[in-house]
Design a protein around this nucleic acid. Structure first.
Length: 853
RNA sequence: GCCGCUGUGGCGGAAUUGGUAGACGCAGCAGACUUAAAAUCUGCUUUCCAGUUUGGAAGUGCGGGUUCGAUUCCCGCCGGCGGCACCA
């Protein structure tokens, strides 16, 4: 049925032609500083799309949403005289390619290349103005080389607390620190950590990946393994503070802030016999109410303080906890559990002896792994104390009217010795000073953020540029980069935590007792710096040249960094946090000129299926972009995705909606072309070379203005609606001036570039007055406010806020005249009859409101 | 539980940030063209009442408030989506 219907305009002819032309002319290639045709006088604009993972299922309609948005912005910026960097690439390492290799025995690079070719074909088919000469692929050896180089920058750096920045490890060597001391301070370090191990996949998984793989039927267990970690926690403070200057959605900033989770509080030392245990609390003012102490079950002091009577119970409890994953620990904990150690601690503030418990509601990984429990003012402690019959002492008086059983807010200190009568804030200050004086504690800040578990036991990722000898790790020499993984006969995981690469014995054994690190990096590694590589994609000597970095990412009178980054919310805390971290390290080491990589961030909203549900194969509501392009053309798909609604909003797909914008493009086509009886398109005869009349000029300039402003604010849906209004007006004009049509095509061209270029070319062939150059290389049209003002304006007349009439007045009519005219209206007198006019409000150019009662 | 976003016709959405609510599009209805259909074009299309036109009332999740005037600002609720989740 679809192939029977005659195309409303020949998009399938001209769209590929324009795409080929852009490709062969390299229309959208942009030179770098130093290149022959580089124009240093133009301002720069760097727009970035979140590059896709080239999956086997091809492009999803969600991809072109953000991509079209940046394409419109960059095409418009180009016309407005900017040097525009708009690149694309592939985040091509990842588990699906490896799974495919495991099943087929084919090297993952082969499948990856196939999928990448398909993605590239699909994107080119949508007419995006990418500079394909800058295409990057995270799996290319020339790219891996620099990912590994950046890893070594981290490996060879430490975080200087005093300067709050990364510095070369060589400084510590010069200070004569021991090897162990140095290794313990590297930004990339090895640590034994309990991790999520998945035997089926043969790798550890990030916390956020666990749920996804479990759903697919895999098991995930907790195991302590020696892993590479990146010291992102050192940057916690800066990662929070430096969000301030960024033009990001507030929600995303908050998400990152909460993820980093900064808490101000105090560490307090408690004595347990000979031992000292430090607890972390955000409420040191409640110290007098601490009636017991809880240690995390994994706390190293548990063994030492447990009394013989309790040791069996404690041991049993610890075992039960160890076998639980974090998830189970929280999910199943409907009721608090715990065991007394039999030991007691001394509350330093009053010398009271308090019992020491272990309970899994205290996490070893947060704070100090130990808490002082204040059951009167903490819900968890309260629940626990009630369950186990522990004393509860109130030490904060709630403000009047607050009847909560367990008051956790701020109030006045009571039963608290020298703190009595103080407000919570004052009490915090006083107790902190006291702890400080007595050398029993100090104010401190803790974060929820954990160091980044950076190693995977997979094959299809960057190998670590590290070798081992005698239990020590060493960086391999720069000249050995890129270090590529060897080909394997069998990509099946061993089922043990030994990485797949450990099977490649020849590769692993370097000789002289030197062996290679066999872990690989996670997929995030490549995406942490791809925006940098775009700036100088072919550079073989550096990851990015200084000139290219300073031009595309430097200040240049802008805030610096990527000028516009569009992508989905799913990366709000992962990719966006990791990339910021790497960027800051590179900045500290003098490799990049700004502290932040992405100045402006916009999140596109998810496109749902026609049924309002998330698109998924199992629901059968997935829309394939190729099918849409076959039926309606690339311009229609682009335009539809922008017309659906605001970019940031979640919105459902509608094939009828696609037809709607397709009809609009057909109307524009028929503004210029008409079809004869043989079915051949010919130029319409009613196009003139004359000047547009006043009304035509008005709607045209309104359109230039609206579209210009709406592109700037990324309000593409309203820009398109204005172009529809303009087209509808043009359709009513008897003899339509070509100049007006061409201007409309210019503002349309960033949205629907193929049809705009095609019609302009056809008009230029028939009309000498039309510029035959490509719209893409034209100047963006300017609007003239003079055409927008009307001599006469309509004003609404309201009586008591209700619309009663509309009058027409001269644009410079005096207020008094308008008021008099309004009061004289028959409709007004009708409604004010019998009432007294109390007040008349005249809003110039808008309305008159007559207040009467 | 906490945090964030969001709520406007049958549907997607618009509204110069306090000034004519429903632009534009979809769907629907009627008409024109056509032997007919498709495509195209024209008109109608928030609801209710009245109805030849002119008209009247209600209306932006619900309830209050500020104002000459509230989709917009303030207070209190309710629903939907997303994130975090024993973080001391």
């Amino acid at each position: 049925m679809a192939e029977q219907r005659r195309k409303q305009f020949p998009f399938d002819d001209f769209e590929p032609q324009w795409q080929n032309r852009w490709e062969s002319d390299k229309t959208f290639s942009v030179p770098n500083p130093g290149d022959a045709n580089f124009d240093a006088d133009k301002p720069k604009f760097f727009a970035l799309d979140m590059f896709p993972y080239p999956s086997g299922s091809g492009l999803h309609v969600g991809h072109p949403e953000g991509y079209t948005a940046t394409d419109i912005v960059t095409r418009q910026k180009r016309m407005a005289g900017f040097n525009v960097l708009h690149p694309m690439g592939w985040d091509a390492f990842g588990l699906p390619a490896e799974e495919h290799a495991r099943k087929t025995g084919e090297h993952p690079a082969i499948n990856t290349a196939k999928n990448t070719d398909n993605f590239r074909r699909q994107l080119k088919r949508l007419g995006f103005a990418y500079d394909w000469e800058r295409e990057v692929n995270t799996t290319d050896p020339g790219y891996v080389r620099w990912t590994q180089w950046i890893f070594l920058q981290l490996y060879n750096s430490y975080f200087d607390e005093a300067g709050q920045k990364a510095k070369p490890i060589a400084e510590l060597e010069a200070q004569g620190l021991s090897r162990e001391e140095i290794d313990n301070r590297r930004l990339a370090y090895v640590a034994e950590a309990p991790v999520n191990w998945c035997p089926e996949l043969g790798t550890v998984l990030a916390n956020e990946e666990v749920e996804e793989w479990r759903k697919k039927g895999n098991t995930v267990e907790r195991r302590p393994l020696k892993q590479w970690m990146l010291r992102i926690t050192a940057y916690a403070e800066r990662l929070i503070n430096e969000l301030d200057g960024l033009d990001w959605p507030e929600g995303i900033k908050l998400l990152q802030q909460n993820w980093i989770g900064r808490s101000e509080g105090a560490e307090v030392d408690f004595k347990i016999g000979e031992h000292k245990v430090t607890v972390f609390t955000t409420r040191p003012d409640t110290l007098f109410g601490a009636t017991y102490m809880v240690l995390a079950p994994e706390h190293p002091l548990v063994d030492e303080i447990t009394t013989p009577e309790q040791s069996a119970a404690v041991e049993e409890y610890r075992k039960a906890c160890a076998s639980k994953s974090d998830l189970e620990r929280t999910e199943l904990a409907k009721e608090k559990t715990g065991v007394a150690t039999g030991g007691t601690a001394i509350n330093p503030v009053n010398g009271e002896e308090i019992p020491v418990w272990i309970a899994d509601y205290v996490m070893m990984s947060y704070g100090t792994g130990a808490i002082m429990a204040v059951p009167a003012h903490d819900e968890r402690d309260n629940e626990f104390a009630k369950r186990f019959g522990i004393t509860i002492i109130e030490v904060v008086q709630a403000p009047e009217g607050n009847e909560e059983k367990c008051f956790t807010g701020e109030g006045t200190a009571i039963n608290s010795g020298f703190l009595d009568g103080l407000t919570t804030a004052e009490a915090k200050q006083k107790i902190s000073a006291w702890l400080d004086d007595e050398k029993l504690g100090k104010s401190t800040v803790v974060y929820k953020l954990r160091d980044w578990l950076f190693s995977r036991q997979r094959y299809w990722g960057e190998p670590f540029p590290i070798v081992w000898k005698d239990g020590n790790h060493f960086a391999i020499d720069d000249s050995e980069l890129p270090l590529l993984a060897p080909e394997l006969k069998d990509y099946k995981p061993s089922g043990t935590p030994d990485p797949i690469l450990s099977k490649a014995k020849d590769w692993v054994d370097v000789g002289d007792g030197v062996t290679r690190e066999t872990n690989t990096m996670p997929q995030w590694a490549g995406s942490c710096w791809y925006y940098l590589r775009y700036c100088d994609a072919a550079n073989r000597d550096r990851f990015i040249s200084r000139e290219a970095e300073e031009y595309w990412l430097g200040k240049n009178g802008t805030p610096g960094g990527v000028d516009l980054y569009i992508g989905g919310t799913e990366h709000a805390v992962l990719h966006l946090l990791y990339a910021r971290f790497w960027h800051k390290v590179l900045h500290d080491l003098g490799h990049v000129s700004t502290p932040e990589p992405f100045q402006k961030l916009v999140n596109q909203g998810l496109i749902m299926g026609e049924d309002g549900q998330k698109m998924s194969k199992s629901r059968g509501n997935v829309v394939n972009p190729d099918d849409v392009v076959d039926l309606y053309g690339a311009d229609s798909l682009r335009l539809y995705e922008m017309f659906m609604g605001p970019l940031e909003q979640v919105k459902p797909w509608s094939m009828n909606g696609v037809e709607g914008v397709h009809r609009f493009l057909a109307r524009i086509w028929r503004l210029v072309m008409e079809i004869d009886q043989e079915g051949t398109w010919t130029m319409r005869g009613n196009l003139t070379d004359g000047d547009p009349d006043k009304a035509t000029k008005k709607v045209l300039h309104q359109t230039i203005k609206k579209v210009s402003e709406d592109i700037a604010s990324l309000s593409f849906n309203t820009a398109i609606s204005q172009m529809m209004v303009c087209t509808n007006e043009f359709n009513k004009v008897e003899a339509l001036p070509v100049s007006a049509v061409v201007t409309l095509l210019e503002v349309l061209s960033p949205f629907a570039p193929h049809i705009a270029e095609e019609l302009n070319a056809r008009l230029a062939a028939a009309h000498d007055s039309v510029d035959g150059s490509e719209l893409a290389n034209r100047a963006w049209p300017a609007w003239d406010e003079a055409y927008l003002v009307e001599d006469e304006i309509e004003m609404v007349i309201q009586v008591n806020g209700k619309k009663r009439d509309i009058i027409t007045v001269s644009k410079d009519a005096a207020k008094e005249d308008i008021e008099a005219q309004a009061l004289a209206c028959a409709k007004v007198t009708e409604h004010t009859d019998g009432l007294t006019v109390r007040k008349v409000i005249v809003v110039p150019g808008r309305l008159v409101n007559i207040v009467a009662n």
